[in-house]
Nucleic acid binder design. Structure first.
Lengths: 391, 391
DNA sequence: AGAGTTTCGAAGGAGCGCTTCATTAGTAGC
DNA sequence: GCTACTAATGAAGCGCTCCTTCGAAACTCT
């Protein structure tokens, strides 16, 4: 029988915990004085100083110019060196590849976009990915060797080891060892996950669902998806296939978009990509036919949304994805439908991150990965900052 | 802005962690030698001894007779004093009130059952609860003042503070402040939760889903329910209403049992309670009409089950509740249906705890409560054992 | 320039866990 | 019945981490 949890332990472990506590207090807090840090960590000033000194020696923390103004002796100030490593977030969709470059705090430094055709062959899309990343690096004046991790959100079902098991939106993607290919390309750790899940993560960290413990994120676009935050953590499931509610016919998500695409009001010859947007815009203007189509669409959308809300009882449901541009048309009716179906209806909010939610979620995922690697109890003592060539 | 997590800290905190580690290593492990304990906790022998000495002083640990046989000097042995406190688990259903008495390890010492009519008034059911508990106490020779906690599983939606917001099975229950009433009755902390959720907890701790991180528990009986274990923890949801998928018509769980009740093969005059069981038994014998009814029943059951499996991607789905007696008829077809609907089908297993799953889950919930209260980091240092009159 | 305020840096003390070693209590073999 | 072996016990001494306390330093306000 394996021993349960290796809790407690050594004195060095206590130091490690306090180092982590200090790192967490410094992360994203800008310039912090020693006294402030001591208060946040709960340690005494001398202990905090010792911990901080160690972090400075390891290269994770730097001193910045002392504070000006105020009473008493000016305090020296310190900051987390978020600029010592860089991360790439990728959103691989049917029509676009988006990339963003961020520092270790997840602060965005550069963004690019590369259009691709949904039916483009694998290599073409991979080339677009490479261009998008190269563009980000050039914009920020960085190099490949500055990258510590690349996180990717893509449509479809992704296995735990980063292969694309199946993608309806990008046919050529099915069966690809995406993580492996990108590792070759970028020479650093690559994390791959489903795009809807990463979007949910972003909304939870910096968007409309900030602070919520239980979140249902509805990725509404031509094709639907869902991402779940449960107990403050992204839920992936045993086989990393959580959120694939679309596949169940009774949930009516497969046919939902059809109501928008096939609305009679859509002019002949409108491309299938633009039809839904046309109907939504027409509904906003008050065209009766369009409004009826949107109503039918919402009826179908609400079935799956209600199933999730009833099953999980989340604090908030986020309406995100491409169609969330039309949140003004969709939000209130969705809320009304959920209030009819649910005993304890959740809040319903529109995404605040819009089109960028997947890229931002990928960045957040990469930040988490770095944190797990360097700043968790399991990872051993806080390690020295890797040399400038990357980890 | 509130300070995030009060991690790390004092030297005393380290001792606390090690005390907890020792308690956890002792819980449910019977008699343990000092060396074995040292190995499990990861501490050195002398440190382990000191920690153990403290726990003995506080009254949580006792020495037992030294081990006989074996090489070398016989080791002194120690055990967790699970018998110093007692817990009650209750299952309040439409037709029965079940009670169990357990020690602090969750080991069952006595069980009783009191029949009640579904339409019985509140006070009658409350009296049955009192009788069931009194019976347990008498069987084990204990008294009310020996109880440290009472945990209750009941049908219906339970608010976080222990009121019954709504119960379809027990009409008189709706609106009752169950936790308040039982606290008056028993004079100790009372925890109330939905019965399906507690059953899921029991299967995760000691039943068919032991060790699984993500579990969907299907409570199949006259009325359906669901309980979710996510990331190893019972999922309650923001308003403690998680699992109420039944309420959604599209999921077809409301009408499912009807296929069994209304099967032509059921003899005239069979009571509504027994009709479904009759059909299931007939299906097992191979009666074509019954088999067709069970098929239709399974079609409906599978819709909700598939929705849950697709959304959460659990490791295992447990078929539990009253109808799990007929798991031989239901399990394989359900598995086949899930394999058709799911990209990565979960394992499907029958409950191993049967009728007792709710009572056992209530006990497990009560054990968790005691653990949270006495043996967690948040609870401060491990407290002295309360005096014999209860906590 | 002096009082007040806040931070800095060093010294001394207490708690906790680790290693080490002599001692003790049993079994196995002759 | 005696000796050799084995494994646990108990006490002593060490090192690490955090704490409290104090005088000195640096800057603002009057």
């Amino acid at each position: 029988m394996p021993h349960p949890p290796p809790t407690g332990g050594d004195l060095s472990r206590l130091r490690r915990l306090n180092s982590l506590s200090a790192v967490n207090a410094l992360r994203g807090a800008g310039a912090v004085t020693l006294s402030a840090l001591a208060e946040r960590t709960g340690l005494s000033r001398p202990s905090t100083k010792e911990v901080l000194g160690e972090l400075i020696d390891l290269g994770w923390v730097a001193e910045v110019s002392p504070s000006a103004g105020g009473m008493g002796r000016p305090a020296r100030r310190y900051r987390f060196r978020a600029d010592r490593g860089h991360l790439i977030g990728l959103d691989i969709g049917g029509h676009n590849v988006r990339a963003a470059l961020a520092d270790l705090d997840g602060e965005i430094l550069a963004e690019t976009r590369q259009p691709v055709l949904p039916l483009a062959p694998r290599e073409e899309r991979l080339a677009a990915i490479e261009r998008a990343v190269a563009g980000c690096l050039a914009l920020a004046g960085k190099q490949l060797c500055d990258l510590w991790a690349v996180a990717v959100g893509t449509t479809g079902i992704v296995t735990p080891d980063g292969r694309v098991a199946y993608s309806a939106t990008i046919p050529s993607w099915t069966g690809l060892d995406l993580a492996g290919r990108l590792r070759e390309l970028f020479g650093c750790p690559v994390l791959v996950d489903n795009d809807s899940r990463l979007a949910a993560l972003a909304e939870n960290r910096r968007g409309a669902a900030r602070g919520a413990q239980d979140v249902v994120f509805l990725h509404v676009a031509r094709r639907m998806g869902a991402g779940l935050i449960i107990d403050g953590k992204l839920h992936r499931g045993f086989g990393a296939a959580a959120g694939e509610l679309v596949m169940l016919p009774e949930v009516r998500w497969l046919r939902a978009t059809g109501h928008l695409n096939e609305c009679e009001i859509v002019p002949e010859g409108t491309s299938p990509e633009d039809a839904a947007g046309y109907t939504l815009a027409a509904a906003r203007r008050g065209e009766p036919l369009a409004m009826a189509a949107v109503d039918r669409y919402l009826d179908d959308l609400a079935v799956g949304a209600a199933a999730m809300a009833l099953l999980l009882d989340p604090e908030v449901v986020i309406l995100g994805g491409g169609f969330s541009r039309s949140a003004d048309v969709l939000l209130e009716p969705l809320r009304a439908r959920l209030e009819r179906s649910c005993m304890r209806p959740p809040e319903v909010r529109a995404s605040t991150l819009g089109e960028e939610c997947v890229v931002l979620g990928a960045i957040d995922y990469a930040v988490d990965h770095v944190d797990r690697h360097y700043f968790t109890t399991e990872a051993g003592p806080v390690q020295a900052l890797p040399p400038a060539t990357g980890p």
